[in-house]
Design a binder for these strands. Sequence first.
DNA 1: ATGAAAGCGCTAACAC
DNA 2: GTGTTAGCGCTTTCAT
Lengths: 368, 368
Amino acid sequence: MGRKSRVTVIGDLAHRPTTAHDVARLAGVSQSAVSRVYTPGASVSPETRIKVMEAAKRLGYRPNQVARSLITRRSNIVGVAVPGTENPFYSAALDALSIALARIGYRVLLFSVDAIAGSDPILEEVLRYRVDALVLISTSLSSHFADECMQLGLPVVLFNRKTDSGLASSVTGDNLNGARMIAAFLLAGGHKRFAFVAGVEHSSTNRDREAGFLSYLSARKVRHIERRVGNYSTTAAEAAVRSLLELEKQPDAIFCANDHMALVALNVAQVGFGLQPGRDISIVGFDNIDMAGWPLFGLTTYSQPIQTMIDQVIGILERQLSGEAAVALQQVTQGELIVRASARKPKTGLSQSGKGWVWRPRTEPAVF
Amino acid sequence: MGRKSRVTVIGDLAHRPTTAHDVARLAGVSQSAVSRVYTPGASVSPETRIKVMEAAKRLGYRPNQVARSLITRRSNIVGVAVPGTENPFYSAALDALSIALARIGYRVLLFSVDAIAGSDPILEEVLRYRVDALVLISTSLSSHFADECMQLGLPVVLFNRKTDSGLASSVTGDNLNGARMIAAFLLAGGHKRFAFVAGVEHSSTNRDREAGFLSYLSARKVRHIERRVGNYSTTAAEAAVRSLLELEKQPDAIFCANDHMALVALNVAQVGFGLQPGRDISIVGFDNIDMAGWPLFGLTTYSQPIQTMIDQVIGILERQLSGEAAVALQQVTQGELIVRASARKPKTGLSQSGKGWVWRPRTEPAVF
DNA sequence: ATGAAAGCGCTAACAC
DNA sequence: GTGTTAGCGCTTTCAT
C-alpha cells in the first residue's frame, strides 16, 4: 500500500494530520501510552504523561474522535431535529439544548426538517453517523421508525411533542391544563365569543391545547367556538386571524395555539382592524417566548419553562445513555398563566409572581 | 478479544448493529461487494446489487459513516458556530445554512458559543471530529486559530463577520455602504440630532456600520452624534435607547446597528416615551429580519439578503472542499434600504421594489 | 505502568 | 465485475 503512489502537489499544505503514532515516536513511548494519556482514568506515570503531552503540543496533535468512535461505539454526538426556526421558541430550545449537551460532553448534529413533511428519511441519514441519541424538537417520527430506534437501543426524546405510540420519551409543557386555564381565564374575563387559532393539525401539541380549551368551554355551555388553522406559521396565522376579525360576529377572545401566532394576531388586530387588545379584544398565546414580554406586545400567555424542560431532556438522556433500562417516560412540565396587557383581566385570581402577574383559577380546573 | 467476557444482560436489546460483513454473508458475496453497492459510481452487476440490497433490507443494514470517514478522511460534516440565538437573524441564517448544506450532502455539527467569550476552546473540540469545514456565524476566531486551520487545510468561512487577518473567507452584507445610505436617508429626511446604538464593540460588523454612518455624517458637518452600546442584546439595547431618549436634547434619529436592537428601540420609544416612530422620531435598523416587516413594527432597515449570502457561503465551501487552492475571499453582498413606517420619509429617492418601498440616494454615496 | 497485538467497520488498491 | 488484502487511527485486552 504505497502512500507515495499519490503525486505530491507542489506546495501542498494538507499534510496528513498528526497521529498518536507520530506523538509516540517523538516521545519515545508506545502508541498505547499516548492513548492512555488522553483517556481519563487510565494509568500513566507522570513522566510518561509529560513526555507525551510535550510531544503532542509540538506536533499539534489532536486525537481523532472518528477513530475513537469507531472502536468505542460512542460518538458523543446527539442528533437534534428542529423544524424551521421561524418560531423563536424552537430557536431558544435548540440553544438551551445545545448548551446543556455541551456541558455533559455531547455535541449536536443538527437537522433542519420540514415541519410538515416526514422526518424519517433525513433521520435515516443521521443514524449512519452512529449518534448516541436523538432529540426531536417539535417533530415526530413515524412509530415504525421509533420501533427501529428502540431496537437499536438508541434513546429518543421528543421535545414539545408526543408520539401516539408512547414508545419514545417526551418532554412537553402542560398543554392540556394550560389551555384549560386559558379558557377559564377568558371566561372569568367575561368573554362571550371565543375563537381558537390552531397550529399544525394533528400535532400532539395542538391536539392537547385545542382539547383543553374546547372541553373546558363546552363543559361550561359555551357554543359556537370559531376555529381557524394557523399552522404555527406567520402567513397562515395572519390569514386565520384576519378571517376571524372579518366575521360579522367578531370574536372577543382569541386563543392562539402558540405565541408566535398570537403575536401575529396582535399585529392584525391592532394595525389591520384598529382594535386595542385587552380592551376591544383579548388575545392569548402559549409558550411565553421572550418577545411576548415586549411592551409593544404585552402578550398574555401560558408559559413553557424552556430551561426546566431542557433539564428534563438532559436527565432522560443521561439515564438512557448510561445504559439503564430504556423505559420511555412522558414528562409534563407545568407553566403559569402570565398576565399582560393583551387580554382583559378578570377581577379575581391575579397575583404577583417574580417580575410579573400570573392568574390562577380559584380551584384547579376540573378534569373532564 | 473475547466479546463474550461481558455478561449478557437478560433481555438485552442492544445487539451489535449489522455490518457489511453480515450483509455479505447473507447475500453470498464478498464484503467489498456490499461496500460498492453503497458507493456511487462503483461497478457492481445488477444481480449483485439486488442480492445485496435485499440482504441489507432484511438485516436493517445501515453503512457506518464513522468507519467510512476514518478511511476516506472526509466526514461530510461542517462545524457551524452560532452565538446565542436571541437575534433572529442568526437563527434564520443557521436554518438556511443547514438546509443548503444538506442539499450538497453535508450535515451540521453545531456549536452554540458565547457571543462575547472566545470560541477557540470549543472549536478545538470540534476539530477532533474531523469536520470538513468550519462556518462561523457572527463569531470570530483568533488569528492564531485561523492560521492553524489553514495549515490543516480546513476551510473556514465567516458569516456576517470578518477577521482582521483576512486569512479566512468571509461573507458579509454591505455594512459600510448600508450604513452610509442610512445616514444619507436620515439626512434627507431632515433630521438634526443623530444617535447610534452600537452592537458588540470591536465586532467587525459593528465597526463597519458605525464607520459608515459616522463618516458620512461628519463629512456633512454633522456634529455631536450620540452613541450608546447595545451589544446586540435586548437588555443592553433597552438601556441604551432609554438613556438616549431621556436626554435633554433627545435625538430625532436613531440608527441601531441591527434590527433586533431597533425593534427594542421601537418598543421603548412608543411604550416608554409615547413617541410615534416616523413622526416624532426616526428609528432605523440593519438586517431586515422577518419581524421588521410586521405591521406593529414597520421598521425601516438596510437588508442583508440571507439566502444570497448563504449561497455564497456554499459556493466558497464547494470550491474549497473540492480541493482547489484555498484562497480566502471576502464577499460583500449588497442590500437595499427598505423603507417602512419607523422613520420619516424623504421627499425624493423613494421607489417601489417588489412588495415594498426602497430608497436610493441620488448619487452613490461618495467614498471617503 | 507499559508495550505488543488484535481489531472497530469500512474503503481502496490490486489481482484475477 | 468481483474477491482478496491491507490498512484508516484509535482503544483495549493481555503479558510483562
